[in-house]
């Protein structure tokens, strides 16, 4: 009986298919599966929100955040709960965090815009159009897997060309290389955007911004809840913030909440 001997091409294809399946399985396995008590916490927070007990809802959602079980929807719900409690700044912070995780979610976009429209202070540098501005509409995870897919295709074609010099593989390799380079650049920019994101939001009704990190220093200007700032650094309970090109100063740290990290440092310190 003749034994089946796969051709070299088939071997390569088979190997790559197995590789692809393995990567998909690995990435799927990476998505955390929540324990029943986590679901229970989420449901009880939702129930509290529906019953109008927004403070309890906030506690529930924040417990999920501290436990590292918060997806975009948890931040969104947390923003809603803060909004219902009249905490505009905290609502905006959590909507912004939700928008980082799900930047194209229409509900998050709507509520974020709705909350921003209720800010007291006029934003003086709302930002313009940047070459990679569209990257804000995709998550880092999406950029990574897009690059991984292109990377796989690119090296697959290169691998084929090692053995077979078909003409189409040359064009495919060139096209994939261009895509590969673009995806790599986008990944780099996305990484930079994430690493350099020092946005913060005023979470108290009113904060006084002074010339130095002392209560006696000259009062420069006053910001109100929800106003966006850039947090330049934090020292001894004070944050150096920039509101616009010519409005920069120090304010007590509790009045400003940075949007990143998504799990606030103060929350991490507390027991889940």
């Amino acid at each position: 009986m003749k034994r089946f001997e796969p051709s070299p091409l088939r071997r390569v294809c088979l190997g790559l298919a197995l590789l692809l399946a393995g990567l998909v399985a690995l990435s799927a396995a990476d998505t955390a599966t929540a324990a029943p008590e986590t679901h229970s916490l989420f449901f009880s927070a939702n129930q509290a929100f529906r019953e109008g007990d927004h403070a309890r809802a906030v506690q529930g959602y924040e417990a999920l955040v501290r436990a590292g079980k918060a997806g975009a929807d948890v931040y969104y719900n947390l923003g809603n709960a803060w909004f219902r409690m009249g905490q505009l700044g905290r609502a905006i912070v959590n909507y912004e965090r939700a928008a980082i995780l799900a930047p194209r979610d229409p509900d998050i976009e709507y509520n974020l815009r709705f909350a921003k429209e209720r800010r007291v202070d006029e934003v003086e540098n709302p930002g313009g159009i940047t070459p990679f501005g569209w990257l804000k509409k995709v998550t880092g995870r999406e950029v990574f897997f897009a690059f991984a897919g292109i990377n796989l295709m690119f090296f697959l074609v290169l691998g084929l060309r090692v053995r077979w010099k078909w003409e189409w593989t040359w064009y495919a390799a060139i096209a994939l290389f261009i895509l590969w380079a673009l995806a790599a650049a986008a990944g780099g920019v996305k990484w930079y955007q994430t690493a350099a994101d020092n946005r913060g939001v005023v979470v108290e009704d009113q904060v006084e911004v002074r010339a130095g990190p002392h209560p006696e220093d000259t009062l420069l200007f006053v910001l109100h809840a929800g106003s966006p700032v850039q947090v330049e650094r934090t020292e001894q309970g004070w944050r150096l913030i920039r509101f616009s090109e010519d409005k920069r100063g120090w304010t007590p740290a509790p009045g400003i909440e940075p949007i990143r990290p998504l799990v606030p440092e103060s929350a991490e310190a507390q027991p889940a």
Binding site: L26, S27, D30, T31, A32, T33, A34, T38, H39, L41, F42, F43, N46, F49, R50, L64, G68, K69, A70, G71, A72, D73, V74, Y76, N77, N80, A81, F83, L101, D107, Y110, N111, F114, A115, G140, R141, F144
Partner: peptide, 24 residues
Amino acid sequence: EDILPIHENPRAVEPAAMPPAWLA
């Protein structure tokens, strides 16, 4: 005018994070 309601999909507590560095 009002905000839109909360999301109640249980997958909200299964965040899709970046793969760990070794896997990436």
